[in-house]
Design a binder for these strands. Structure first.
Lengths: 124, 124
DNA sequence: GTGCGATATGCACCGCAATGCCTATCGAGG
DNA sequence: CCTCGATAGGCATTGCGGTGCATATCGCAC
């Protein structure tokens, strides 16, 4: 082991959380993106919630909040039918899903760079 | 008013939160930076807490957590004396205070740029 | 050696957001 | 027309971070 107590160990990592606010409060972030992502691949909000390990109640509430705040319909919902119902991303939903991911990815890469510089400055 | 419900209004803004983790949990972020900042200009932890509008209890606990986790002494504490005591940033504390601010500033600038690109992609 | 005000720390309590429980409603299919 | 499973949503509960309270210790000045 390298043995030190004062310096910056290797398991110090940067954290970042991004979101999009309307009038100051967050209405879309990583959690809701994951939800869109899960719906996209599962075909229903319920299956998406189960897949993510969160309650349907929360998933539904979160999505509603985002849709109301942004005035966007992310999902095309269908109730009833033999399967009980289903949900899929709308055209605009897919667009958000795709572009937000890119936004997040760009920032993830950037935080790694900025943190490396920070660390460089600290260790001299 | 511009009148729309589906598009992206002008008061949609990006949010970002940065922090530094050790073994996965955050030990230093904006809150603790503000604390260092307040101590720097006030000269005591108590005055800093009052200045920030948080309880001394919390300020003290937060700082202790960060110091223990990182193995760094941010403050040089003095108990007793006619004034009761005081605290000031150590050399290393000032360095963190300065460099973390730069790290944060760089990311703030970056998120503005990335979000502008995101918005540009969305409105076409 | 007494008083004062800040550091130091445990513990009990409180407020609010997240979590979960329960119920209603919908509609294709048999 | 009844079943089934998912959407829809009200409402009770809980979990946890922050606040407050209490107590101890320190050391300079008087």
């Amino acid at each position: 082991m390298s043995a030190k107590k004062t310096a910056t160990p290797q398991d110090i990592t940067p954290g970042i959380r991004l979101w999009i606010s309307l009038h100051g409060d967050g209405v879309f972030g990583h959690g809701k993106w994951q939800l869109l992502d899960a719906v996209h691949r599962k075909g229903s909000l319920r299956a998406a919630a189960d897949w993510l390990g969160i309650s349907y109640r929360k998933a539904w509430g979160d999505l509603r909040k985002a849709e109301r705040a942004l005035g966007i319909h992310f999902l095309e919902r269908h109730r009833g039918g033999i399967s009980g119902g289903e949900s899929n991303l709308t055209e605009e939903g897919r667009k958000w899903h795709r572009e937000y991911a890119r936004f997040q990815d760009e920032m993830d890469a950037e935080v790694a760079r900025a943190f490396a510089r920070f660390r460089g400055r600290m260790e001299q």
